[in-house]
Amino acid sequence: MIREGSIHIPFTYAAGRAASRFLVVLRDEGRILGSPCPACRRVLCPARSFCPRCGEETGEPVVVDPAGTVVSFTETAAGVFGLVRPDGADTAMLHRLLPAGAKWTIGARVRARLLPERTGSITDIEGFEPLEATEDHA
């Protein structure tokens, strides 16, 4: 005999010190923050309060470039997802690559496309689109 059902679990997740600041600056200034590690000298992006590799508390956040490089990507039914390393950062962040139909390659140059109305969420970045496309718009 089988029984089936579903249950709804409400939850909250506090972004904490570094991620709150990252999201506030993204929302209010449209800029992307990274955190420098005093030990390994890497700039971690998105910003975080400590370096997972060294265990050190990170320093004052720095603004990284909205332009970056695709480190890897995958095409799924829900769209294309890539790891993008923004210029000025040493780590890559997972996000959408836009548009989904484009021909993607590792090493492709991309730029963050921000929503005009932002709420303080990582999806305030709609995704990363080819750098040439944004330059055409400019």
């Binding site: 909250t12 997740y13 506090a14 972004a15 904490g16 010190r17 570094a18 991620a19 309060s49 400590f50």
Partner: peptide, 10 residues
Amino acid sequence: DDASQPELVR
């Protein structure tokens, strides 16, 4: 809520 889960652990 001043700290994320990893920040609290740390």
